[in-house]
Amino acid sequence: MKYIIFILFTVMTNAAAQLMLKQGMMSMGPISFEGVNPLVKLLQIVFSPWVFLGLCTFVISMASHLYVLSKVELSFAYPFLSLAYVAVAIFAYFVFREDLNGWRIAGIACICVGTILIAQSGREMGSRGHEDQTASVNPDKIGTSEIVR
C-alpha cells in the first residue's frame, strides 16, 4: 500500500492522456486519407498539439508504471489501471458531454468494487518487500528442465 500514490499517478496520467488524445482528434475533425499520403496524414495527427501532448503523457504514465512494477506485484498493480476507465468516463461526461447512462455507472461501480478488493489484498502483504513476494527467475536456467526432488 505504500506505493499507492505512484499507482494512482499512473492511473491519472493514463486517463489524462486519453482525454488529450480525444481533444486532439476532435480538433482535427473527421480524418480522411483520400488524396493524401497516409504517412503525411499520420505525421499531421501525431504532431498536432493535443495528440502530441497526449502521447507524451502516455510516456510519463508508462515510466511511472514501470517504477510501480519494480516495487509491487503485477497482479496487485495492474488491476488498478482499470480506474483509468472510471476517470475517463467521468471526465468525458463533464468535458465532452459524453453519455453516462445507468449501464456505464453500474460498470464503473463494479470496477471500483473490484479495485477496492484488490487494494485490500495489499494490506495482507504487510511489510514484506517485493523481492519476498515474487519468484525470481534465474536467466541461466531459462530453457532448461530441472527436476526438483
Rank of each mutant, 00 (worst) to 15 (best):
I111V: 13
I7D: 02
L39F: 12
F58Y: 10
M62D: 11
V36S: 05
I7Y: 04
D132E: 14
E98L: 07
A89L: 03
F94M: 10
S121I: 00
I118C: 02
M28L: 15
S75C: 00
A106R: 03
W50Q: 01
V46G: 03
A119R: 11
M1F: 07
G143P: 08
K22S: 03
N14H: 08
K2L: 10
I108R: 13
G129W: 06
A87H: 03
C56Q: 04
A63L: 10
R123G: 14
P139M: 01
V95M: 12
R149K: 13
F91A: 15
M20E: 03
G29E: 08
Y3H: 14
S121V: 05
H130G: 11
D140V: 06
I118F: 02
A15P: 01
L43A: 12
M26E: 15
S27G: 04
I116S: 04
N101H: 11
Q23G: 07
G122V: 12
P79C: 01
F94Y: 13
V148Q: 09
E73W: 02
C110S: 12
D140N: 10
S82A: 14
S145C: 09
E34N: 09
I111L: 14
M20W: 08
T144R: 14
G35W: 11
G102E: 05
M25G: 04
L39K: 07
V68E: 05
G107H: 07
G126I: 11
P79H: 04
P38R: 02
I105G: 01
M62F: 14
F94V: 09
K2M: 06
N101S: 08
M125H: 14
V40E: 05
V88P: 05
A135C: 05
V95H: 01
L8Q: 13
K71Y: 06
D99H: 13
I118T: 12
L66E: 00
S32E: 11
I4Q: 10
Q23P: 02
Y93V: 01
S82I: 02
C112Q: 09
D140S: 09
Y85G: 04
K71V: 03
L81G: 08
